[in-house]
């Protein structure tokens, strides 16, 4: 009897804290945001009272606004497009890097991993501002690019305050989130599979494309989710490095809570963003299961 209640207590002691954490820091804010999306913006900012003249003030105005005005959907699509490009470029850069790390010896591997996470040691905004200097019109990079452009008779282009600047910084900031899961996956691959594929007539490209790449897909999907989701909601990078055209959904959401003081609409946009991110992550997981057949294939690679 005592042992049993002890066991239950032990179970709650283990489950309790993370559960409480999720409730307090995820469920509760999400609920508050969901509720706010049905309310009316306050005169001064914030929200107008929920109970007014004995009537509960909940409405669909902000949703109606989102769904009847295509401009928000357009910005959404643009943000999705930027996040997709970011994910793609991160993947293209991270794959060879993760392969290199996975294939190098123990000592080099630790050093290389350290280099990958080293940027996290400095503040995010400082790293973004550093790109302002790197991309500035008087910096070496812009001079070189525009030198080449002048040589082929093209007028100079600004690198800073452009979509290019936003994208390059998005890729830079999110790259480690792609490298780490990819590395964790590639490191487990069984060399015998590649030997077998070679023996069965596969050339280097076929070995990569038919064996290594499909087996790395769990890592690719994990990395893609880790890159895509934060890239979708980011606002600081377009704010700092973007040109006049580079306002993304994160910026629009930020405006609702600051300049416009329209919390309900900001909540609607945030909810749509969260739903979109979840839907895309869910879709990726579904595709992942479809293409791999089983969720355990990465583990199997080791056998």
């Amino acid at each position: 009897m005592a042992a049993r209640s002890d066991g239950r207590l032990g179970k709650w002691l283990v489950i309790g804290p993370p559960l409480a954490y999720l409730l307090v820091f995820f469920a509760a804010p999400a609920l508050i945001m969901a509720l706010a999306s049905f309310r009316t913006p306050g005169e001064f900012g914030g929200l107008s009272p929920l109970l007014e003249n004995g009537k509960i003030d909940l409405n669909l105005d902000s949703y109606a606004r989102f769904f009847t005005d295509s401009i928000y959907a357009q910005i959404f699509l643009k943000s999705v497009w930027y996040a997709l490009l970011t994910t793609l470029f991160c993947l293209l850069l991270a794959y060879p890097l993760a392969t290199l790390i996975a294939k190098s010896g123990k000592r080099h591997r630790d050093l290389l991993l350290l280099l990958v996470i080293l940027p996290f040691w400095s503040n995010f905004l400082i790293r973004v501002y550093a790109w302002m200097i790197i991309l500035g019109p008087n910096a070496a990079l812009a001079r070189m690019v525009n030198g080449v452009l002048a040589w082929v008779g093209h007028e100079p282009v600004p690198l800073l305050f452009s979509s290019f600047a936003v994208l390059i910084c998005l890729v830079y900031v999110h790259l480690p989130f792609m490298v780490l899961p990819l590395y964790a996956n590639l490191e487990k691959h069984d060399q015998a599979l590649l030997d077998a594929a070679q023996d069965l007539g596969a050339n280097a490209w076929q070995r990569f494309w038919r064996i290594t790449f499909p087996l790395s897909l769990p890592g690719v999907y994990a990395g893609a989710a880790l890159v895509f989701i934060p890239a979708l909601g980011i606002f600081a990078i377009p704010d700092i490095l973007g040109g006049p055209e580079d306002s993304l959904i994160g910026n629009v959401i930020k405006q609702q809570f600051l300049e416009t003081r329209d919390w309900p609409f900001g909540s609607v946009l945030s909810i749509v963003l969260t739903v979109a991110a979840l839907a895309i992550a869910g879709f990726a997981a579904w595709v992942a299961r479809g293409s791999l057949g089983t969720p355990s294939s990465a583990g199997e690679a080791r056998a």
């Binding site: 069984d190 015998a192 599979l193 030997d195 077998a196 594929a197 023996d199 069965l200 007539g201 596969a202 076929q206 038919r210 064996i211 499909p214 087996l215 897909l217 791999l292 057949g293 294939s297 199997e300 690679a301 056998a303």
Partner: peptide
């Protein structure tokens, strides 16, 4: 052709996929 000690079957392919692999190559 070689049959490896660990069999080295491709875990992400079905039995058919494994057997079809050298044919495709």
């Amino acid at each position: 052709r070689t049959v490896f000690q660990s069999y080295a079957l491709f875990p992400h392919m079905t039995v058919e996929g494994n057997i079809a692999f050298p044919l495709q190559m």
